[in-house]
Design a protein around this nucleic acid. Structure first.
Lengths: 159, 159
DNA sequence: GGAAAATACTTGACATATCAATTAATGATC
DNA sequence: GATCATTAATTGATATGTCAAGTATTTTCC
């Protein structure tokens, strides 16, 4: 049932076995994501952006000139970000995001990517895609499909 | 080649297609890990520990009474942590970690888990395992094996 | 055995994350 | 149409993460 001899156990120099294969899978998931995350961060950080900031700009580019309200951005992020307001503060300081209060609903603040942000994003498209794609370059097409299906299943919950 | 219609694209309300299935897999990996990470955090944080702190204590428990030098702990962590010194500072303040300079090599600082930490860990074993295991409870045994193999392949690099 | 390189941390400065409490505006209800 | 609940976002306090530079100790190697 349990094992210390997996690849992950070796990486972490574990002295105790995993209590189940599912536990091994969960810890492998967290570790693998951390490795991949750092690799992709290396592409955007030299340009003065964290991954989260980059993700916000991508979302705003996709939303177009109408922009999106603050919390709507947060809900679309790959990694949840309760600090969305201050994240936007920093992007606004760097003149990469513009914010205006929505006239229809004055509680909302509509955020848009500035032309400067769009230029920056354009210059990052190729290297970021290369990194995203490259992170899984050792998988065959079938393996990639299998991975996507497994991850979808994990996020979709017990069902 | 590209698609906007996947489950992940729906979750993130994407307006643009992924540029490749590998990119979709990479972003799915990051998002899934974030979801799972938060779920497991919920188990340990009510006990005053972050996931990283919990991970350190687990490593020290596994190392036994001899303890481990600071950077050796860092190298065994599931998620890399350049702030290991201060992470240990906080655990020491909480009296969960004891540190002594190694007499054989005075550059090193040997860290051990205190009896209090061992008691805390013992009380967390069952709920944490339930969360680790539960995160993948929707996968069959075969799917779990497949996931572990795919994650191993990703971490092992281009090969 | 003594200078230079490598190792093992530590520290300072700063950025970012997290949670709870707060403000402002809108919606719902009677 | 005033009250109450809800929603959207901000703020304050604090914890944590990150990078570069610094210190102490050991190792290398001539």
């Amino acid at each position: 049932m349990s094992r210390v001899s997996g690849r992950l156990a070796t990486e972490l120099k574990q002295t105790r076995p995993f209590r189940s294969r599912r536990q091994e899978g969960t810890l492998g998931l967290l570790r693998t994501a951390d490795v991949v995350r750092r690799k992709i961060s290396e592409v955007v950080e030299p340009h003065g952006l964290t991954l989260q900031q980059y993700n916000v700009l991508r979302i705003l580019r996709g939303a177009g000139p109408d922009g999106l309200p603050t919390l709507e951005i947060a809900s679309r992020m790959i990694e949840a970000s309760p600090g969305i307001t201050r994240l936007l503060d920093r992007l606004e300081e760097k003149r990469l995001v513009a914010r205006v209060r929505c006239p229809k609903d004055r509680r909302r603040v509509l955020c848009t990517a500035t032309p400067e942000a769009l230029r920056l994003l354009a210059s990052l498209d190729a290297p970021v895609h290369a990194a995203d794609d490259g992170a899984l370059r050792m998988l065959t097409d079938r393996q990639t499909e299998a991975l996507i299906a497994l991850l979808d299943a994990i996020r979709s919950g017990p069902s």
